[in-house]
């Protein structure tokens, strides 16, 4: 623990020149283990998630990608059967081991799940909800933000005339974009996306994917996908997992074009 803290201050002290050569980490995962009873879901994960880059998590079903994502914003807390140990540093805070203000911590991250789950309120209120939780009262400011975020995800033109109707009335693709807008409205630094396009039609998928390419200028993105082409198109950094372990990681060229491990080779053969 001590050495970790020391090391961390060191990085902060590093002169600019050196830091540039080493990409800055937005999230730094150390010895993360997750158990469910005797099932070792995540096995000693060590991973640096580079800032303002897209990190793609790949791996066969059940290898622990979703669990890894949920560990990053402590959604694992909701599952009493999960036992999480290790450290996850966001900046210099170890979120697993400090009694952090967890809601505030989660607001640093926007989560986009596999299926859209619009809140049971209007389109407008869906996007405004995070701001409301933050205590923003200024109606004009909220309305401005809602409009901005809906524009950011390309939904504004489609919904501007029915902002106050139920979010359930939107198509699935629109709902997913709404969920993205809702997540962006709390001004996160990191976006966590768990197969965000797997439930969508090709057109909506493409829209979401394009949004991600825009968003990566401003956000650190961690995305799980089973679509290798999507991984190729989006990733700066690919992480391949297998049975709760990280097997390979690197640039998309290195990992996808030149796999080393037998597990990854097999996965790629099946995937393409």
């Amino acid at each position: 623990m001590n050495t970790l803290t020391a090391k961390n201050t060191d990085t902060l002290m590093e002169p600019r020149a050196i830091r540039k050569t080493k990409p800055e980490s937005a999230i730094s995962i150390k010895n993360l283990n997750v158990h469910a009873g005797s099932h070792h879901i995540l096995n000693n994960i060590n991973l640096e998630i580079p800032k303002n880059k897209v990190t793609v998590l790949l791996g066969p079903s059940g290898c622990g990608k979703t669990t890894l994502l949920k560990s990053l914003n402590k959604l694992t807390d909701l599952y009493k059967e999960l036992d999480v140990s290790g450290s996850v540093f966001i900046g210099k805070d170890d979120i697993l081991n400090s009694n952090h203000n967890i809601p505030a911590l989660r607001q640093k991250m926007g989560l986009l799940s596999q299926k859209p789950y619009p809140l049971p309120v209007s389109i407008f209120k869906n996007v405004a909800y995070g701001l409301k939780l933050k205590g923003v009262k200024d109606k004009k400011l909220i309305a401005y933000n809602v409009e901005q975020k809906l524009k950011e995800v390309g939904l504004w033109e489609e919904v501007k005339d029915r902002l106050h109707s139920s979010a359930d009335s939107l198509s699935i693709g629109q709902q997913q974009r709404l969920c993205l807008a809702r997540g962006l409205a709390v001004k996160p630094q990191i976006i966590l996306a768990d197969e965000p396009t797997s439930a969508l039609d090709p057109v909506s998928s493409k829209i979401i994917e394009e949004r991600f390419r825009e968003l990566k200028k401003y956000y650190t993105i961690v995305i799980v996908t089973h679509i290798l082409r999507q991984a190729q198109r989006l990733a700066d950094n690919v992480v391949f997992m297998h049975y709760g372990k990280i097997i390979e990681q690197g640039t998309p060229e290195a990992v996808l074009k030149n796999p080393q491990s037998s597990q990854l080779k097999e996965y790629l053969v099946d995937g393409f």
Binding site: P103, A104, G110, G130, L133, L192
Partner: peptide
């Protein structure tokens, strides 16, 4: 109530 909906609430910073 789907778990994903509750997770959405939590991830937006709801207690």
């Amino acid at each position: 109530v789907p778990y994903g909906l509750k997770e959405a609430g939590f991830s937006l910073g709801a207690t």
